[in-house]
Structure formats: structure tokens, C-alpha cells
Design a protein around this nucleic acid. Structure first.
Length: 588
RNA sequence: GCGUUUGUAGCUCAGGGGAUAGAGCAACGGUUUCCGGUACCGUGUUGUCGGGGGUUCGAUUCCCUCCAGACGCGCCA
């Protein structure tokens, strides 16, 4: 379906043409003065220069051509040259009816679907997920779902960190603790044990211990670097250990992401890109892009237009082992080969922007991607505590994601049982659903690129711009619809009538914005625009609800119309929260 | 030091070349023939849109500069 603003613009453009003005000035926008009108066109003021005429005169000429259009209830030319528009109620109702009949709720799917890969999540194996991983998962998941809603083929890849120094650190620490294990015996000819020599709990304790030691003990760090290198060279014992680490860790990660309702199509890892590294390095050398510098192999990626010199990309360390950038470039090679995407989007902490600038430039210089392939860095800001500093536990440690989720769910559970007589089993499940909405909405309602304050009390509140408020509104609608059908009503039978009052019209016009909002939010990769939209839509519904007694309405046609409108609002809200990555319960 | 980025109400955040810069929270007051009151309505010189210049008929929005914070600057990821 066409967007309502486009339809209005087309109609206004006809008036511009009839009055003898260039139709390019006819663009209509939503009014910023809702007390005066619903839509406005500022084109008369912009056209002033071309026609050397007072804007108000131009506006009057145009308005004169619009007065008999059935689309409008009211049009006016206002000083200094605004064209103010009110839509006719019948037209709004007609739009609602068409929207209701459209399974995509008026959103037009992409005419040419793209293959888009989203690199998000990015956890390191053998380390527990902490709050730092929250944003990538939540934002990435939402963008993936938006893309799919718009009709694109979107592939989400978790891109595990399984090949860097942290693996060497774990191997080194394991050797310190259990030197007799066969993995460290170079003479051992196998086969290695099938059971991992550690549990996930032990693994999560080993890494921080090793990391701590490496910072104070130079020799220890050397060992870890060497172990990393040996792993990259494929030393059998280390490879066997690496497999154990992966098995144990990935199972745990999957469990945790599932709790967040975050789902990856691919569980690829840095190690998967390793086979592509030799040819990558050779290519970079052959093309004259890579050269040696202080023993390392580097690629100059600076450009003349840079305000500040961009440092070279390090392709290989002086000991020949690969680095972050090497792996990311090799991953691009792999992705192009396996999936040939039109675009790759990286949802990563914004502090890594420079790294991606280097990687993208190198990838383009070397022709690893097609010219038209998009490489997009979507950096997100830090999640801070109420003090404005990075979010920590009460004693100053790193907050594990599991614990954060548990805290929120406990809080939600308390609120739910306090106010409702729901059974405990149901309350637990409901608390999880509402809790997830609190976390995700709290995050996504902020612009991704900015730092934001994670405030548990605010996010879990049922009042204000929060996930629980949105869910409450939806549950309320569902409740009314359920009563209607219980009373023998049929949802599909209603024809939506022209709005009975201004509040109902506001609700309709807000509904009608859905397609434009979704399209724009995806274009800009801005989930927060969906949040602010459903917040406004919820407010409009609650206002309407407050003024209108729906179920007790005696005129059955009117009642059916309202029910149909409610069902439409419900569907729009469902679609939006699904894209945001959470769900509404039946009761709460 | 260089660079990137942010600065909007007491707090948390939207917005964005145009008509009176908006929401929520917090504070105070109101709404009950109630389909879920975890709702709705109202009140405040809520404000030098960080300061100063410039472009423009018009700047909070674009450009420059200064101030403040965050972040990044070759062998970690």
C-alpha cells in the first residue's frame, strides 16, 4: 500500500500543477502544530524565490485548487505561507479498512530483496556473557527482524571470538593446573579423551585468572602468546582442547541467547575464517598492498582526505601470527564466497570504529567485495549505571548477563503478584516476558549510537515510555477483543467507519503511519523510532479507550467498527514488538 | 597532543532550516454509570536547545571557533 503522506502529497501536487507551480514543492509532512492541522505543506515558502511572489499568495492559489477534493476535510493558507490540511474522516477510515485487509499491515516489501548479513553478538568463548554483550545482541536482533519484515533475506551470524589471545591464555592456565593432561604432551599420538577436562563453570573461572596473571607476569604472557600462535598453526593437542572449549562454551551461550529471545542463523567463529588467511595474505602481497614494517606485515589504508592519519592495518604480527584485522578480512572473504551478500552490517561497540574503517578500506582496496557491496559499521554506545559510569555490580565487578536478567525478572515477578491474583507458575512465565520487554525496550528506545543509562526502576515501571506500558496496553486490547468474541462477536466482520471524534481520528492517523515508520526505521537502522511510534500509538489508544465505551455500545455496526480498529491497533503493536524482539502475554 | 563523538527541562531522553522546541519521570491537583485506574485529564517564566561568531527571509537544527565530558590513536579483541 502507498504511504498516506505520499497519497496526500500526490493530491497536493495536482493542486500545485493546476495552479501553475512546480510540483516538486508539493511535499507534505505531518503537522508540527496539531492544534491547527494534521498535515502541512511548506512548499509555498520554498517556491518564493522561483516565482518571486509572496508565499501566502502562492499558498492561496494552491488552496483554491484543493477545496473540492474529497480527500480533505479542511485546507487553509496561513501566514506566512503554510498550507494546513485536515484529512477527511471517511478517507482515514478507508485507509484503515485497506490496511486491515493487508497481511503486511500496509508495509510494502522490498521490490528487490537484498541478502544482508548481520554480524552481531560477538561473544568470546569461554567467557560468560556480561552486560557489554547485551546491546549488540538486542540491537542486532532487532535490525535483523526489521530487515526480514521489509522482505529482505537477512542472515544473522554470531561471529564467536574463538581464535585470539584468550584461547592461548586458557591453554596456558590449564597447563599450569593440569600439566599431565595429554593435550600438552607433544609425543602423544591420540586419540584424545572425549570428555572435556573442565566444566563451563571452571572455564569461566580460568579465563579471568589467566588474564590477571598475564598482566603482571611477563613470562606467563609470553607463554600465552606462543600458545596462541601454536594453536593457529594447528598443534593437535591444542586443537583438541580448543574443540572442548567450543563444545562446552557454545552450549552455554546458546542457552543464554535463547533467554534473550535472540537467535542466530549462523554460529560461525573467527576460526572458520582461518583457512582463507594464506590466500588473503598472498593476495595483499601480490597486489602490492601489504609490506613489511618493523617485522610485521602491514597495509597502508590512509587516504588524502583524512583529517588525521589513519594508522596502517596490521595484517600479520612479526611472529607471523594473525590478528583481529586479519580475521575480519578473512571473514569477509569467507562470507562473500559462501553467501555473496549485498551488504554486511557490523553491530559492534562504537569504540571499535577505527578498526572497521581500516578493515573496510583494506577490503575495498584488495577487491575482496564487489564495488556495490555495502560494508556498514553500526557502532553502539556504552550502557552506563545511574552514576553515568559503565554499568557494574554493587561491588564494582562486571555484571553477568544472567544475573541482570534475573534481577529484572525478580522485580517484575514482585510487581505482578502484588497487583494480580495470578498463579505462581503463570506469574513466573509472565514476569520473564515482561522483564524482557523492560530490558529490550529500555535499550532500544535510545539511539543506538549514544551511551545510555540503564535504570532498572525506570525500565520496569508500568508507567511512562517503557516496555511494560506497551505490553499493558496490548493486554488491555486483547482483553476487550476476547470479551467481544466470547459474547459471540466476530472480529473479521467489522467495517471501519469514519471516526466518531478527534481522539478516534488521531488513533487512525497514527495507525496509518505504520508503513512509513517501519520503512524509515529500517533505512536508518533505528529501532528507537519504532519504540517512539508504539509509545505514541499506545497513548492514542489509551486516550481513545478512556473516552469510548466500546462493548456497551448499542449500535452493533459502530461497535464492530471499533472492534475492527482495535484489532488493527493490536496487530500493528504485535508486529512492532516482534521486530523489537519481545512478546506480549495474554494477561499480566 | 591529534582525531572521533556527545552537550536540549531538576532527572532520563526524543526532535529537527520554518508557525508557540517536545515526551516520560519526579511534584501538585482532578477523573469511578470503569470494556483491566499498572489508565486518563490538568498545573509550571518547567528551557541563554553548552558559550560565541557566521550562512539564511528564518538556525536549536547547517558551517567555524571556544568550553566541558566520553572514547580512540601499530603487533589485545
Amino acid at each position: 500500500m502507498k504511504k498516506l503522506l505520499d497519497l496526500i502529497t500526490e493530491e497536493v501536487a495536482k493542486a500545485f500543477e493546476a495552479a501553475g507551480y512546480n510540483t516538486s514543492y508539493a511535499r507534505v509532512s505531518i503537522s508540527n502544530r496539531p492544534d491547527l492541522c494534521e498535515y502541512q505543506c511548506n512548499g509555498a515558502m520554498a517556491a518564493k524565490k522561483e516565482y518571486k511572489k509572496a508565499p501566502i499568495m502562492i499558498a492561496q492559489d494552491i488552496v483554491a485548487q484543493m477545496t473540492d477534493s474529497s480527500m480533505f476535510e479542511e485546507v487553509a493558507a496561513v501566514n506566512p505561507g503554510f498550507i494546513n490540511i485536515k484529512l477527511s474522516g471517511a478517507y482515514a477510515a478507508q485507509y484503515m479498512t485497506e490496511m486491515e485487509a493487508d497481511e503486511n499491515l500496509s508495509v510494502e516489501k522490498a521490490a528487490e530483496p537484498k541478502t544482508i548479513m548481520i554480524d552481531y553478538g560477538g561473544p568470546n568463548v569461554a567467557k560468560p556473557l556480561h552486560v557489554g554483550h547485551l546491546r549488540s545482541a538486542i540491537i542486532g536482533e532487532s535490525i535483523k527482524r526489521m530487515g526480514r519484515f521489509m522482505g529482505h533475506k537477512v542472515i544473522g551470524d554470531v561471529h564467536l571470538g574463538d581464535w585470539g589471545l584468550q584461547m592461548g591464555l586458557i591453554i596456558t592456565e590449564l597447563q599450569e593446573r593440569q600439566p599431565s593432561l595429554p593435550y600438552f604432551d607433544e609425543a602423544f599420538s591420540g586419540p584424545y579423551p572425549e570428555e572435556a577436562p573442565f566444566t563451563i563453570g571452571e572455564l569461566e573461572e580460568i579465563y579471568p585468572a589467566a588474564s590477571g596473571k598475564s598482566k603482571v607476569d611477563e613470562a606467563y604472557k609470553e607463554k600465552a602468546l606462543e600458545a596462541t600462535h601454536q594453536l593457529q598453526l594447528g598443534r593437535p593437542g591444542y586443537m583438541a582442547l580448543w574443540k572442548h572449549i567450543m563444545t562446552v562454551s557454545v552450549a552455554d551461550l546458546k542457552r543464554n541467547y535463547q533467554k534473550l529471545n535472540v537467535d542466530f542463523d549462523l554460529w560461525k567463529a573467527e576460526s572458520d575464517a582461518q583457512p582463507y588467511i594464506p590466500e588473503l595474505v598472498q593476495l595483499m602481497k601480490d597486489k602490492g598492498l601489504a609490506h613489511e614494517d618493523q617485522g610485521a606485515l602491514i597495509v597502508d589504508v590512509k587516504q588524502e582526505s583524512d583529517a588525521k592519519e589513519v594508522p596502517p592495518l596490521l595484517l600479520l604480527k612479526s611472529d607471523g601470527s594473525s590478528l583481529y584485522a586479519t580475521t575480519d578480512l578473512a571473514t569477509i572473504v569467507e562470507r562473500m564466497k559462501l553467501f555473496n551478500p549485498d551488504e554486511i552490517i557490523y553491530v559492534v561497540d562504537k569504540r571499535q570504529e577505527m578498526h572497521f574503517v581500516q578493515v573496510f578500506r583494506a577490503a575495498r582496496m584488495a577487491g575482496l567485495v564487489k564495488e556495490e557491496t555495502g560494508l556498514r559499521f553500526l557502532g553502539f554506545g556504552t550502557m552506563n549505571g545511574k552514576d553515568g559510569k559503565p554499568f557494574k555490580t554493587r561491588d564494582g565487578g562486571v555484571m553477568r548477563l544472567e544475573n541482570l536478567i534475573k534481577d529484572i525478572n525478580d522485580e517484575m515477578f514482585k510487581k505482578i503478584v502484588e497487583n494480580r491474583s495470578v498463579r505462581d507458575t503463570e506469574a513466573t512465565k509472565t514476569a520473564e516476558m515482561v522483564g524482557l520487554s523492560a530490558i529490550k525496550y529500555g535499550d532500544l528506545s535510545n539511539q543506538a549510537s549514544k551511551d545510555y543509562v540503564f535504570d532498572v526502576d525506570r525500565f520496569t515501571s508500568f508507567e511512562g515510555n517503557t516496555g511494560p506500558y506497551i505490553l499493558y496496553t496490548m493486554v488491555r486490547i486483547k482483553s476487550i477483543l476476547a470479551r467481544y468474541t466470547e459474547g459471540g462477536g466476530v472480529l473479521e466482520n467489522g467495517k471501519i467507519l469514519a471516526p466518531a471524534n478527534g481522539v478516534e481520528k488521531d488513533l487512525m492517523l497514527k495507525c496509518a503511519r505504520f508503513n512509513a515508520v517501519m520503512e524509515n526505521a529500517f533505512d536508518e537502522k533505528a529501532p528507537h523510532k519504532i519504540c517512539s511510534y508504539i509509545y505514541e500509538l499506545s497513548n492514542d489508544f489509551n486516550r481513545f479507550y478512556h473516552e469510548t465505551k466500546i462493548l456497551s455500545e448499542e449500535n452493533e455496526v459502530q461497535k464492530a467498527s471499533w472492534i475492527a480498529l482495535l484489532d488493527l491497533v493490536r496487530r500493528v503493536l504485535e508486529a512492532c514488538i516482534d521486530v523489537l524482539g519481545f512478546e506480549a502475554p495474554e494477561r499480566m
